[in-house]
Simulated scan of single mutants.
Amino acid sequence: MANDNERHVVPNKERGGWDVVAPGASRASSHHERQADAITRGREIVGNAGGGELRIHGRDGRLRDSDTIAPGNDPNPPRDRK
């Protein structure tokens, strides 16, 4: 199922750190030093845009996890995975 509101957290090989990017975008939505910060920002972006999917990639660039984000301010958000 295609999702118009999707973001990926991927390693930035040139600058280091992690980017939050939309599929097919020429620029990152945001850049972070830590992957955890990029994941948090990615969840905010997708949630504010009406919900969708956040795909999380590992250092090797391969998909390692995905998260379905509910629209807006979810009154019962999932607990942080630590």
Score class of each variant (00 low, 15 high):
58 G>M: 10
50 G>S: 06
47 G>I: 04
64 R>D: 00
56 I>G: 00
55 R>C: 07
63 L>T: 06
45 I>W: 12
49 A>E: 14
49 A>Y: 05
39 I>Y: 02
39 I>Q: 06
66 S>W: 04
50 G>K: 00
51 G>D: 11
39 I>A: 05
53 E>D: 09
60 D>M: 14
57 H>N: 07
64 R>S: 06
44 E>F: 14
40 T>A: 15
54 L>Q: 05
38 A>R: 01
45 I>A: 05
62 R>Y: 03
58 G>L: 12
51 G>Q: 11
52 G>T: 07
49 A>P: 12
43 R>C: 13
43 R>V: 13
38 A>E: 02
61 G>I: 06
63 L>W: 04
67 D>W: 04
54 L>K: 05
50 G>E: 13
60 D>A: 11
49 A>I: 06
50 G>V: 13
40 T>F: 14
53 E>T: 08
57 H>R: 09
48 N>M: 12
51 G>L: 13
62 R>F: 13
65 D>P: 00
46 V>F: 09
44 E>M: 13
43 R>A: 11
50 G>I: 15
38 A>V: 05
51 G>N: 10
63 L>Q: 03
64 R>Q: 02
48 N>L: 11
58 G>H: 09
51 G>I: 15
41 R>K: 10
63 L>S: 02
57 H>W: 04
59 R>Y: 01
44 E>A: 15
47 G>A: 15
63 L>F: 06
57 H>I: 07
42 G>S: 03
